[in-house]
Design a protein around this nucleic acid. Structure first.
Lengths: 237, 237
DNA sequence: GCAGCCGATTGACCCAGATCAAATTTGGCT
DNA sequence: AGCCAAATTTGATCTGGGTCAATCGGCTGC
C-alpha cells in the first residue's frame, strides 16, 4: 500500500541454502547452472503491506517468492478489488506478454523474494529450454488453478466458497510445511472476501457459522480444522 | 453433448492453405518445419454439439482450432456449469500437467481442428524451443484473460458482465474477420449465462434492456452494436 | 492502566439477481 | 404449410448475500 521501500542484501546469499530451490523454477537447473543463475538475481526484503509491483507497471523484473505471502489483485476503476491469487514460497511472478504486469502484488507480512532483472533473465533462458519448459509448467498449473477459481466465483454459494478456500489454502500450507489441521490465515477477512467475490461481512458470518457447527475453531491468526470431512462435504456442494 | 462422431480427412490437407497458419502455434515454424509439422497432425471435423474432449479424460492429443467455435467448461458434481472460455480459430488446446484435460470442450456449430497426437507432438517440440516459446506465450495470454474473467465473475454486476462480454467477443471476432458492428453470437443464451456466472433469464432480460435503451439491436444469430460507446460506458462501471 | 484505532463480528434491513411459471418465438421435420 | 420440441422472452415472486450501522475486542502508545 505504501511506496515500496526495498532493502536488498547484495551479498551473502546462495541458492545452496535457499528453501525453495527444489520447488521453484530453479528445480530445472543443474549445480553449475544454479551457480551462474545465483549471480543474476538478488534477494529483496519487503515489510508488511508493501507493493512489490503494480498493474500496468512496465515489467522490469521477474520474482521468485522465497518467504512470506503476497496478495495478487486487480482493481476496477471505482475501487472494487478482485484478488486473483495468493503467492507463496516457490511461486514465480512476472510473466507477461505486453511488457506490463497484469496485476498488482503486495506483501502480507514480511516477504523475501529473489528478484531477476528481465533482460539478463531472458538471455539466461534463451539457451536453456529446460528452464523454459519449467516456466511453461508453472504457467499451465496456474492456468488450471485459474479455471478452478472461475468455477468458484461464478457458480458456488458463499458457504461453498469459504469451505473450498479453507481446504485449498490448507493444502498449499501442507505442501510447504507438512500436515497440520491448524490453518494459518495471514491475510485479512477483506482479502479473503476479495478473493472469493464476497463481502467481509459474509466471510465473517460464514466463519462464525462454521464454528457454531463445530467444524472449525477460529483461533488467533487462523483457524483449526476440527472436522475436515464436514468441510469437504460443504465445499463439494 | 452426443458421443462424438469424428470424421477425419486423412489426405489432401496442407498447412499452406490453412487459414490460421499465421496466428496459431504454427506461426513459430519456418517453411521446412511446417512441412514436417503437417504430417504430425490431421484435420478432424465435428458437427454441432459434439464433444471434442472431456474433463478428466486422459490427454491423447493437442488441438489447434481451424474453424468454428467451441465452448470450454467445467461441471460441478450437481450439474452446475461454468464456461471457462470460448475457443476460436487459432486457439491451441490440450496443454496440461496431469496428463488429463482439466476442462471439457464441445463444438458450437461445425468445427474443424488440427489434431496432433501427444507423443509425436511432444517429440517435435523437444528440439524446437521457439515452438515451446510460442506455446508459452499462448499460455501466458490465456492466463491474463483468465484473470480478467475472474474480476468479471467476482466483482461485476449483471449489466457490466453482459456489456463486457459483448465488447470482448466483438474484439475477438474483429481480430479474425475485420471490423464490424455486427456481433455474431453462435452460442446459446445458456452458454452466455454459464460464461458470465448468471442465469439465462438475467442474460435475456439484460439483452432486452440494452435493446430498449437503443444501444444494441437483437438480430438473428447475434446482435448489432448501435452505440459502442454507451456499451463501453456500461462495461467500465 | 487506559484511550484510541483498526479489524472483526453481529444485527437489521434491502435489493439484484435467482427461481418458478407462463407465454412466445424459432427451428427442424415431414 | 403445419407440427412438435427446444430456445428465448417475459412476468411474478423469493432469497442469498449485500448494505448500512452498531458494537466488540485486541493491540499500541502513552
Amino acid at each position: 500500500m505504501k511506496p515500496s521501500v526495498v532493502t536488498s542484501e547484495p551479498n551473502g546469499h546462495h541458492c545452496d541454502d535457499c528453501a525453495v530451490r527444489g520447488a521453484a523454477v530453479c528445480s530445472s537447473l543443474d549445480a553449475a547452472e544454479l551457480r551462474e543463475f545465483e549471480h543474476l538475481g538478488r534477494r529483496v526484503h519487503f515489510d508488511s503491506g508493501e507493493t512489490v509491483f503494480s498493474e500496468e507497471d512496465i515489467t522490469t523484473s521477474f520474482y521468485n517468492v522465497l518467504e512470506g505471502v503476497m496478495r495478487l489483485y486487480k482493481l476496477l476503476p471505482d475501487g472494487r478489488r478482485q484478488i486473483v491469487g495468493f503467492a507463496l514460497p516457490g511461486d514465480f511472478l512476472g510473466m507477461n506478454l505486453s511488457g506490463r504486469h497484469n496485476f498488482s502484488a503486495d506483501s502480507i507480512g514480511v516477504v523475501k523474494v529473489c528478484q531477476f532483472p528481465k533482460g539478463p533473465f531472458g538471455r539466461f533462458i534463451e539457451d536453456r529450454p529446460q528452464l523454459l519448459r519449467r516456466i511453461n509448467e508453472l504457467a499451465i498449473r496456474e492456468l488450471s488453478q485459474a479455471r478452478d477459481h472461475m468455477v468458484l466465483l461464478g457458480r458456488r454459494s458463499a458457504d461453498e466458497k469459504v469451505a473450498t478456500f479453507l481446504l485449498g489454502w490448507r493444502e498449499r500450507l501442507v505442501a510447504l510445511n507438512g500436515p497440520s489441521d491448524m490453518v494459518a490465515l495471514p491475510m485479512s477477512r477483506q482479502d479473503i472476501a476479495d478473493y472469493l467475490g464476497l463481502t467481509i461481512e459474509t466471510v465473517s458470518r460464514t466463519f462464525t457459522k462454521l464454528e457454531r457447527l463445530g467444524v472449525i475453531e477460529i483461533i488467533h491468526g487462523g483457524i483449526s480444522l476440527l472436522d475436515p470431512a464436514r468441510v469437504e462435504a460443504m465445499a463439494a456442494a
